[in-house]
Design a binder for these strands. Structure first.
Length: 648
DNA sequence: CCTCTTGTG
DNA sequence: AGATGCACAAGAGGC
């Protein structure tokens, strides 16, 4: 909606300026007119080979087709194609049912349908034709589906990723949302066709005419969105970013998700039993100490026990009227009573058991025997991936008990896991973008950056550095990346807020360029509404002009963090896009399995581990080049082992 | 459905 | 006076 207004303004400005254009000036590209979504729409139902061939021929002629597949999902099996819509022009689309079951009396007199096999063999040349651009929304999901039938979709554009590049952090990049915002039109919700909850039916059970209207509308929407977003990419000079950083990742990430990672089911079961036994023991100890049973997992009940029954001091109720019982509070209470310490251990083991030992075992795929995560490519405001179903980006590492979970992630026989991670990438980027001479030189010299910070801020000579001082400096360095506050730093390193404030002032005295960077970022963000990464990704920060000072301060911290986190995301994405070809070029057989923000995990034939580590390290360390040379080196550390813990 | 808590980078 | 380090996902409790 706001976009249409903008397009109109642009057009007016261009037409007014047209007479004055000199040869050296190039008019900005104009957003093409897109017919109203409510205008005439012709959605066909294709039920013969001849009919399908006519649509395929028309798509070949036009060179562009939007696709919207629909699937039927049976629990525990991979989705199968129920039908696919093709859109050739605004309002002109067809639906090809291939897996709709004839069930219920209404369908008995309905049209027939093509066999899945016949339709696939007709569609394959189109979907693989290098001369025909296939447009989809969330193409990675489509690629998974088509790979089931041996089809490799190419070339393609993904309207979800195009929108993410243009408007990351502004709103969710669902097709429903984009159509609502761009065309002021509501798409028919899926649940109107398949229902919800107990009455949920498979898409294949939906009547073909209703399926046609639904799927064709979405293919049509993707086609219209593509016209709009492509023009915006050009006008906002984001085409190269989309084409070189986001788009190439689709097949690479799809392959990672498809390959999955091997998890030792028996090891997880052993862990679960061990955790269960210890949780029960701790529970009994807590109940003995308190004098009665209660639900330890209920923060409400726990707060009452700690602060009323046991009368421990410092109980503070939050806005919901419940006592706070988080780890920092329990740690303060631990010296006063045995129960808080028990609760901390109970929580740790409960979390590990339910979230990892038990849940990961359930996620092992019946067919592959491996765990297959999904990466969300267009969710995080900073350009990062997120991982879900299950989340493999938060597997424990910091405690010994947690690392036992990590040891259940293993390589196939004859293989090793190879981990490659960027060392302190965000701090290196901070030194670069804030242009801090001392920090840049320290990274070039390969110095211990936390020790150096400690000696600068606390005046301790490097030769006399102690662990506590270095740890504080490390916390300050993390604080810088996150947009520091005295309160947050004080809580992190357990010193009074005033003392933390003094440390921050000392830091800014030593590294004034960091403060200047932070002020510049905030000012720029306030005027534009977004911040930028080193590769030009825009991260929109919605709260930056919020009238509420607390919310605005939060947005300012986001604005400080986003260019660093986001640049790191750009860099690892560039590496990921290049690694598959680099491995092929070197005749290596490693599979890239996981990405955890600054780490890539590979499964590698034992004999190829060292060569693979060398190649991966070179690609990752060179991922900025040639587009953008950093003033600090990127350093990648590698490790290898039979399991993920050992590989670190 | 929201809140709290905790796991990761 | 009161809230106060960035980005996520997920399990559990409770309304």
């Amino acid at each position: 909606m706001e976009f249409r207004a903008l397009a109109t303004r642009m057009t007016q400005r261009l037409s007014m300026a047209a007479a004055a254009v000199t040869p050296a000036e190039r008019p900005e590209p104009v957003i093409p007119e897109i017919p109203a979504f409510t205008a005439q729409r012709t959605y066909a139902l294709v039920d013969t080979i001849e009919g399908l061939d006519r649509w395929i021929e028309a798509a070949e002629q036009s060179g562009v087709v939007a696709i919207w597949p629909e699937t039927s999902n049976v629990a525990g099996t991979r989705p199968t194609l129920a039908g696919i819509a093709l859109a050739l022009a605004p309002g002109l689309a067809a639906y090809v049912p291939v897996g709709h079951r004839v069930s219920g009396s209404l369908d008995l007199d309905g049209p027939g349908e093509l066999s899945l096999e016949a339709a696939i063999e007709r569609l394959r040349p189109l979907l693989e034709d290098p001369g025909v651009l296939k447009i989809g929304h969330d193409v990675k999901t489509t690629a998974h589906l088509l790979s089931r039938y041996g089809i490799g979709l190419a070339p393609y554009d993904c309207t979800m990723l195009m929108s993410y590049v243009l408007d990351g952090g502004q709103f969710e990049h669902t097709i429903e949302n984009l159509v609502r915002r761009s065309f002021e039109q509501e798409l028919t919700p899926l649940k109107e066709l398949v229902g919800t909850g107990k009455s949920l039916i498979a898409f294949a059970e939906v009547a073909r005419e209703r399926a046609r209207d639904f799927a064709a509308e979405r293919a049509d929407a993707a086609l219209r969105l593509h016209t709009l977003l492509k023009a915006r990419l050009v006008r906002e000079t984001m085409t190269a970013f989309y084409e070189t950083i986001e788009r190439p990742l689709v097949p690479a990430v799809a392959a990672m998700e498809r390959d999955g990672i091997k998890v030792d089911r028996a090891a997880l079961a052993d862990l679960s039993r061990d955790f269960e036994r210890r949780i029960a023991e701790i529970e009994q100890a807590i109940f003995r100490a308190v004098g009665n049973d209660f639900n330890i997992g209920s923060t409400k009940q726990l707060g009452d026990v700690l602060f009323e029954k046991l009368g421990l001091p410092g109980g503070k109720k939050g806005k919901t009227g419940a006592y706070g019982t988080d780890a920092s509070i329990l740690e303060e209470l631990a010296p006063l009573h045995e129960v808080p310490g028990h609760v901390l251990e109970w929580r740790q083991l409960s979390k590990l058991k339910s979230t990892y030992a038990d849940a990961l075992g359930e996620e092992i795929d019946r067919d592959s025997g491996r765990v297959h995560t999904s990466y969300a490519l267009a969710v995080a405001a900073t350009g990062r991936f997120s991982s879900n179903n299950p989340n493999l980006q938060n597997i424990p590492i910091r405690t010994e008990e947690g690392r036992r979970i990590r040891r259940a992630f293993i390589a196939e026989p004859g293989h090793l896991l190879l981990s490659a991670d960027y060392s302190q990438i965000e701090l290196r980027l901070a030194a670069d973008v804030a242009d801090v001479p001392e920090l840049k030189q320290a990274f070039r010299d390969g110095l211990d950056i936390h020790a150096l910070t400690a000696s600068q801020v606390f005046g301790v000579p490097l030769a006399e550095m102690d662990a506590v001082t270095r740890r504080r400096a490390k916390a300050i360095n993390f604080g810088i990346i996150y947009g520091i506050s005295a309160f947050g730093l004080g809580a992190q390193i357990s010193v009074p807020q005033a003392e933390a404030g003094a440390y921050i002032r000392a830091y800014f005295e030593r590294f004034p360029a960091i403060r200047a960077y932070m002020e510049r970022i905030k000012t720029d963000c306030r005027s534009t509404g977004y911040v930028e990464t080193i590769f030009g990704r825009k991260c929109f920060i919605p709260g930056i002009r919020d009238a509420n000072p607390a919310r605005r301060a939060g947005a300012e911290r986001q604005a400080i963090n986003a260019p660093l986190q986001g640049s790191a995301a750009d860099i690892i994405k560039r590496a990921m896009a290049r690694i598959p070809a680099a491995l092929v070029r070197e005749r290596l057989h490693a599979r890239m399995l996981l990405q955890v923000h600054d780490e890539l995990l590979f499964e590698v034939p034992e004999a190829e581990v060292e060569e693979t580590a060398r190649v991966v390290k070179i690609v990752m360390e060179g991922a900025c080049a040639p587009h953008c040379e950093l003033s600090v080196p990127l350093v990648v550390e590698t490790g290898r082992g039979r399991n993920w813990d050992e590989a670190h």
